[in-house]
Nucleic acid binder design. Structure first.
Lengths: 218, 218
DNA sequence: CCTAAATTAGACTGTACGGTCCAGTCTACT
DNA sequence: AGTAGACTGGACCGTACAGTCTAATTTAGG
């Protein structure tokens, strides 16, 4: 109740959530309550003083992790390419980190047991990121910096290109997560911007309206 | 031993594997041996007559599913775009089906417990698909139908664009898997082919060497 | 019909775990 | 010093499950 006890909203509680996050990310929800308590350096009963049951602790972990995984899109006056480069680097870093991959594994596995939790994670996490990105891309389209198309589709493509196949790779292959690689991000972003380059106005109109494949080579 | 018993290599065994595949895909490896046996319409002991332990049965399921998920790239004389359209449709159908998603969930969750199995799945499944696709794309590049680039990178991008964000969506959101949508596949493929369109030779050389973003807007 | 192999149901063992209870200890505030 | 509230350790309960064992039953072949 003291203003001093306010900041440390139960030291135990935060240690427990932290420990639970680590353990669940490493071993999945199957990890025993015992291990969580041990990792937090606390008795099992103490855990139950703070959380009514294991599932509730898990829910709290997921809620906090969801917030931590959100990405901020700098709204400042960088070029579109610069903004996407920064976004892409952060996004890859979070998603392809050991914690990001572990969290993905753990939550995906529990979709059956906790469908509502998973859906809520999706709405306030990935869907949120996609929505923000859509907005930015929609603006770029209006400014003529990108070809006019569905902003949602464009966001979907960018997010997919940034981590799609790589996530599967690091999820299954057992290879250690990759070090951040700005060059690779740039390669992806430039590839992306090519796909969504504004239609060249100086070119003959016909060539820009036919599918790319039909333009290729006589 | 009879030539007749050969084709039905133990009716029980295949029923068990089939049942295990269904149950594991629906509920994960946590599903009890009891349930698997029940689904196969067989006693628990019979299961243990055919498989030494639960883990081995799971391994067999994964091995068979891996093979079933491989995609064949038609090598015939269609246009590149046609080939990619067919491939993309099949790929999305398999990956985004209820079984594909469930299998992904289940195996991703067990990466910790069965790292070797997961790695082997990755090598003979997704990595194999990527390799075949790389070969096809490399050929297209040589023929000048696609911009010259790393075929592996190009394959990675296509596979990512086809399912990347959608997989996450259907894994978590709880929405039922999507119906096949050829139009959406075409939208993706055309977007992809734009990104990898061969460099127009008739255009001034400079414009094709600068990043797309710098070309945008005067 | 007889035999051998496979299948079955069910009891049983050992283990792991979630959750509860409790008796004792520590901490902090008055 | 005294009191209240949190923390501890460990015993304890009920349940679920993998895997074993056994005795009875079915199935197929000679």
């Amino acid at each position: 109740m003291d203003p001093l006890s306010e900041p440390e909203i139960s030291d135990c509680r935060v240690r427990l959530i932290q420990a639970a996050a680590e353990v669940f990310v490493e071993q999945g929800y199957r990890a025993s309550v015992e291990r969580v308590a041990a990792r937090a350096g606390v008795a099992r009963q103490t855990l139950y003083n703070h959380f009514p049951c294991k599932a509730d602790l898990f829910g709290e972990v997921v809620r906090q992790a969801t917030a931590a995984l959100l990405i901020t899109l700098h709204a400042n006056q960088l070029t579109l390419r610069e903004r996407l480069l920064r976004f892409g680097a952060m996004y890859r870093e979070k998603v392809l980190s050991a914690e990001g991959l572990g969290f993905f594994r753990t939550l995906a596995a529990e979709t059956v047991r906790f469908p509502e939790l998973a859906a809520s994670f999706y709405r306030t996490g990935p869907a949120q990121t996609a929505a923000r990105l859509s907005a930015v891309l929609g603006e770029a389209m209006k400014r003529g910096e990108m070809r006019c198309d569905s902003p949602e589709f464009a966001a979907n493509m960018l997010l997919s290109m940034l981590v799609g196949a790589d996530r599967s790779h690091y999820l299954f292959s057992g290879d250690p997560p990759p070090a951040p690689d700005p060059e690779h991000v740039a390669q992806i972003i430039d590839c992306y911007l090519r796909a969504f380059a504004p239609i060249a106005i100086e070119a003959p109109a016909s060539s820009s309206l036919t599918p790319a494949s039909q333009r290729s080579i006589p």
